[in-house]
Design a binder for these strands. Sequence first.
DNA 1: AGACCTGTTGCGGGAACCCGCAAGCGAATT
DNA 2: AATTCGCTTGCGGGTTCCCGCAACAGGTCT
Lengths: 244, 244
Amino acid sequence: MKVLIVEDDQFHGSYLQDALSEALPEVTEIISASDGLEGEEAARQPGVDAIVMDLQMADRNGIEAARTIWSERPDSRIMFWSNYADEAYLRGIAKVVPPDTAYGYVLKTASRERLKLSLRAVLIEGQIMVDREIHRQQNRGDIQRARLDDSEYAVLMDLALGLQDRLIAERRGMSLRTVQNRLLSLYEKLGVDSDLDAGLTLNKRVRALHRALVTRAINVETLETAQRDLNEWLVGRASPGRRS
Amino acid sequence: MKVLIVEDDQFHGSYLQDALSEALPEVTEIISASDGLEGEEAARQPGVDAIVMDLQMADRNGIEAARTIWSERPDSRIMFWSNYADEAYLRGIAKVVPPDTAYGYVLKTASRERLKLSLRAVLIEGQIMVDREIHRQQNRGDIQRARLDDSEYAVLMDLALGLQDRLIAERRGMSLRTVQNRLLSLYEKLGVDSDLDAGLTLNKRVRALHRALVTRAINVETLETAQRDLNEWLVGRASPGRRS
DNA sequence: AGACCTGTTGCGGGAACCCGCAAGCGAATT
DNA sequence: AATTCGCTTGCGGGTTCCCGCAACAGGTCT
């Protein structure tokens, strides 16, 4: 069995390599890549059965690399290994994982035992496994009162990009008023108003983005990929009617 | 010589310990802390001459820890050691470093040689030393067209918190129109308009925050500490004139 | 001194935003 | 079939935001 490790921190990389060969005796070969691009390249080698991937990497991050890898080989088993329990990462992964594909998400702070267990479960058994820390993070009701559904999340991304209501409506195919309703529930769920019990009134749009960031509903990498998606959408929209 | 290492990643911690004792033969004792709070505590021990501090830590981050340490012992020499070259960190450090105090900022991606050199320069020689990568990051004119001055930065933080113009004016002691002028130049410097050459008009406030984040002018930790500062200011404002 | 530049402030108006109200519509329940 | 519930949509109005225009103060250059 041949496993690819994509990790840009050499210490974490060698620790991972250790744990991997300890946990999975069936591994015969380990290859490494130190950023997302290299990772995509290396994953094209024949015989790569499984991948362990860091999420935060300089050039191309883990989720983007995973997207291209999965688009080429949808049955690849990928284990994500990350410092942070941001909900944004989980959403990002959920958007790119093919159906019936095994993947996992463990934190770097997890114990060696849990890491080894997860590696076996995902890479060998083909399970789907997400560190319970990550789910717990999201559900703490004091900070994030309710989960955002997909449509709300989409609007949140557009808001975060700075689109105005009209544009969001066009992009998401809703009416203007519906967009505003989504925003309303976003403000509610993100706790925008709860901060102004102190009697101060604030800019809800910006505050929503602020709250989304500090609650880890989105993060800066999310913003960057969302910007790329927006650019694609924009060129797709710019064909006919070259007016003004 | 007694040195304190504050670092929550054990691998990086032991690497640092190695490099430290290699680079500084005069070190006789190394003590460790694994988060900001522990670090503050440990720094109170007698005889701690120098500190190496990670910036990203779970509970209390490196800058906050440095602030309390410096407030107790302003002559402490602190070397910051970080994964990211965010301008936000540099600004945060600049705000808390006492005058005539030695400090340094190196990236974790720096070579072992450069790390050792910086350690000597800062902890032994008492120099101020900032990794050139960090300055380079900020000055790339394609992304960030011009540096923000302190007043603009302050307004940017308030904007990021979701304050509206009136509040910012009150907090910073400017007129409403002046605040708006600051915002104008922020929009300019952050490149808010440059994105809308594609002909799309967007919400400048939110877009400014977006740009500030992706250009690393600010980051999420900045937002969190700014929120705390805001809360302090709010309670300080709430005493007399209980009007409406 | 006069010209000039930079930063601050007020005014005013068009655009965007926030949101209450109410009508419409499909799905689930009774 | 009637009712209820949730979601969508249009309308209207109060508020905030963005910013051009212009007056003014203080500092610099000639």
